[in-house]
Amino acid sequence: MNVVHPVLSVRHVGKAFGKKEVLRDISLQVEGAETFGILGPSGSGKTTLVKLLAGIDEATTGEVRVLGTTMPKLSVLQKIGYMAQSDALYSELTAKENLEFFAALYGLKDGNRTRRIGDVMELVDLQEHLNKRVDQYSGGMKRRLSLAIALLHEPPLLLLDEPTVGIDPLLRQAIWTELKGLNRKGTTIVLTTHVMDEAGKCDRLAMIREGRLLAVDTPAGVLKAAGAASLEEAFLYYGGARP
């Protein structure tokens, strides 16, 4: 796969809604085929940052570049697989109808569409529930279906906002294995989380709090710099809660 370096670059980005500043002077880069975690408590600006990367929102200051193009840009959206924090599914439709709809939006046709729908549903272990209506799905199943939809069009960049919330540990393990597999095939993954143990599985981490970037490093690097035994401790250290 032809990967631009860096896949994602964020330079001095700020975002304000009216007078409320949600993000302040964020700069970071994500390289091709890595798993990049954005770690922070709720309300820290993680979701806003992901929306800027996904091109849904526009930065107030600074510049976001995705795959070499300044965002927001419509043509780049085809190359992004986005999974929102809320399960954006049509609950009165079946899983298959939801998948067919999004597949059509991404321009997947006939045979390819059917094949991809089969592939992604197998990946999230929902193939038996393909023809079930989404309002009969459990919370975890909806989460997995959302993930499946994000993977449908085989995007080189995945933006996942809290992808594993409400998924049981066993399946979470399986999904992580799959994500790592995608990494190996060249897919770049950016995900947000507030679960520390999950953050440890990322190649690199960005810690944000109250809209500011605290640190960007590998999990091991973060621990070392903070002189902490766990990511949780390190997070508290960067947040200024511990001297």
Binding site: I56, L77, Q78, I80, Y82, A84, A88, F102, L105, Y106
Partner: peptide, 8 residues
Amino acid sequence: ERLLSTPL
């Protein structure tokens, strides 16, 4: 929002 994250 999900629709608007596609090239639609």
